[in-house]
Design a protein around this nucleic acid. Structure first.
Length: 589
RNA sequence: GGGGCUGUAGCUCAGCUUGGUUAGAGUGCCGCACUGUCACUGCGGAGGUCGCGGGUUCGAGCCCCGUCAGCCCCGCCA
């Protein structure tokens, strides 16, 4: 399969099975070892490395000379014979260790300047600075690690396509030049040349299109969709990213979860990891109560408990104050945690304070005696009530849930990162169900959709929409893996009247609803089947499965944290003529 | 929008704490030698606007201010 007009094999494919065969290879000079009379070259291609052996016994003088002069990263075309290496010289490092290629001809096909960053790193040689790696991206992409990441990414994409196709999903593309929609993030806008003053937007997701495909009767849709959001970036966030986007008709939330579980199990299998189904399910409220976060890492224990009812009348006065103010005291038990040093405790307290907690209360039981801070009186009662044993540590935070949840999540995360802490399982998937339909935007004190405005309310909470919208649950579910949100989905609103009412609750006028979402409402009015769907963050999945720590290591040409492309140099200023033809004028400062 | 870290040879870094002779190391690069190496080895050599601008000082890689770039985090990302 790898044979072409110019080569018979890939270098990395050669093995003992090819002994004695005449081969022709094309690849890059990874390393060269010139012993004077002998020259060895490690030849690299996407399949791996093979050693080329140039020896006057089988290599003509002119070829010896060319081999000796081929610098790192030069592209060479090689003719030779696969041979067994001399016994003591067999290298255990290379996949093709037992064999080498006796070179009879070698041409320089693509001379290379001395590489600005090294592709063939020595043992322990540090990676070049990321800025240089991005600037010289072709060289960085030659590194076997990045090649492995992108090869795995390819296999994951193909596996997702195969699974979805087996499940009778149709891959349908949707527009990239689309209509600005008031989703959460800022849009990337594209000016129209033929319509002065008008703009397309790049899609933040194909959300409305996929719902309209359901209305159009396509039943099950998927797309490996590129999405664009003009927001500030992180290690796990790029301005353009890829989702495995899907939608299906005549389904319940459970149906969608089955499909997503199947995809995730197949993707993890593709990466060599077996995971069991079904995934555990956790209501959003319970996740917040037990872990303080809507994407808990279930590889670890340290569940959060409500200590408020356990506090007797002798509780410290400030705890009583918290209680009367409607807050609670919540905490967790660290088995064996009494061994933590004062410095460890200070570090944990710092993470709680960074999450805006007033402070971290602790109590520990050493050999018989109780020590503590803030809850001296209550510590023993609490630990006893929680089943804490000698050597255990109690950590607690007081205040409203909005304070204690993030603080205890931060404490719990800090605990799990301690080197002596072992996860109880390697791969912990979970579903988070029944998210709230709305949440309060702290900046504007306005009701905003927790997910997006097309999410259906929970049928049991339908009457709460008017009475207490903040209490209403949604048919919205997230897939969570080891504390990472992999994706999000929901059952959608299909009644035009209800969809209209949701828009109103979000503060939109009739005219605004018409202008922004008229095409969706018209679609729903055309006979909409019940439907719902999901979107998986594919880059993040590829990152987790390849063991990378940044999305940039699973994307061929990524952007920097300021959304710049250092390799090709985008964005870039355009000429006055270009602006003019787009009817644009640069705003004066 | 805010906070933090980093920026010295092609690359990776030391030097900065406490300002003072000619800014070092490893690697890469160039030259010479070398017939079984595999991080080849040995000898020799070239290579620096110390990110950029300004300031303090007799004197700045080092101190101060500003700025640019990369990375990490908060806000933001339905």
């Amino acid at each position: 399969m790898s044979a072409t007009a110019l080569r018979t094999h890939r270098a990395g494919e050669l093995s003992r099975a090819h002994l004695g065969q005449a081969v022709r290879l094309g690849g890059w000079v990874h390393r060269r070892r010139d012993l004077g009379g002998l020259v060895f070259i490690d030849l690299r291609d996407r399949a791996g490395l093979v050693q080329l052996s140039c020896n006057p016994d089988w290599t003509p003088p002119a070829v010896m000379e060319r081999a000796a002069s081929a610098g790192a990263e030069t592209v060479v075309l090689v003719t030779g014979t696969v041979a067994l290496r001399p016994e003591p010289a067999r290298d255990r490092e290379l996949a093709s260790r037992e064999i080498e290629v006796h070179v009879t001809d070698l041409e320089i096909a693509g001379p290379a300047q001395t590489p600005a960053i090294s592709v063939a790193r020595k043992d322990k040689e540090e990676l070049a600075a990321e800025e240089l790696r991005l600037r010289h991206r072709v060289l960085d992409l030659r590194r076997p690690e990045l090649q492995q990441n992108l090869i795995l990414r390819h296999r994951l994409l193909q596996r997702a396509r195969r699974t979805l196709t087996e499940l009778e999903f149709l891959e349908i593309e949707t527009p990239i030049l689309t209509k600005p929609t008031p989703e959460g993030a800022r849009d990337y806008l594209v000016p129209s040349r033929v319509h002065p003053g008008e703009f397309y937007a790049l899609p933040q997701s194909p959300q409305i299109y996929k719902q309209l495909l359901m209305v159009a009767g396509y039943d099950r849709y998927f797309q490996i969709a590129r999405c664009f959001r003009d927001e500030d970036l992180r290690a796990d966030r790029q301005p353009e990213f890829t989702q495995i986007d899907l939608e299906a008709s005549f389904v319940s939330a459970e149906d969608i979860q089955q499909v997503v579980e199947r995809i995730l199990v197949d993707l993890w299998a593709e990466a060599g990891v077996a995971v069991a189904r079904p995934f555990p399910r956790l209501a959003w409220r319970d996740a917040m109560e037990r872990y303080g976060i809507d994407k808990p890492d279930l590889r670890y224990g340290y569940e959060i408990r409500d200590l408020t009812p356990l506090l007797g009348g002798d509780a410290a006065p400030f705890l009583a104050d918290v209680r009367t103010a409607g807050g609670r005291v919540r905490g967790l038990v660290v088995p064996g945690g009494a061994a933590l040093t004062r410095k460890d405790l200070d570090a944990l307290a710092a993470s709680a304070k960074e999450a805006k907690a007033g402070g971290l209360i602790w109590a520990r039981r050493g050999s018989g005696a109780w020590e503590g801070q803030g809850v001296k009186a209550a510590g023993q009662i609490l630990l006893d009530a929680l089943g804490g044993r000698e050597g255990d540590l109690l950590l607690a935070v007081a205040g409203p849930d909005a304070v204690t949840s993030p603080a205890l999540h931060a404490v719990r995360t800090a605990l799990t990162r301690r080197p002596d802490v072992q996860p109880t399982q390697a791969h912990a998937f979970t579903w988070i169900l029944e998210f709230p339909l709305f949440e309060l935007d702290p900046a504007t004190n306005q009701q905003v959709p927790a997910h997006h405005p097309f999410t259906a309310p929970h049928p049991a909470d339908r009457d709460m929409l008017e009475r207490a919208p903040g209490q209403a649950r949604a048919l919205h579910y997230d897939a969570v893996y080891n504390g990472n949100e992999l994706g999000s989905g929901s059952i959608r609103i299909t009644e035009p009247a209800l969809q209209r009412r949701i828009f109103e609750l979000l503060g939109m006028s009739e005219a605004e609803i018409r202008r922004r979402f008229g095409f969706l409402l018209d679609g729903l009015a055309a006979g909409a089947p019940p439907h719902g769907g999901f979107a998986l963050g594919f880059d993040r999945i590829a990152m987790l499965l390849s063991g990378a720590t940044s999305l940039r290591d699973v994307i061929a040409f990524p952007k920097t944290t300021t959304a710049r492309a250092l390799f090709e140099g985008a964005p870039t200023p355009v000429s006055a003529d270009d602006l003019l033809s787009l009817h644009l004028k640069r705003a004066e400062e």
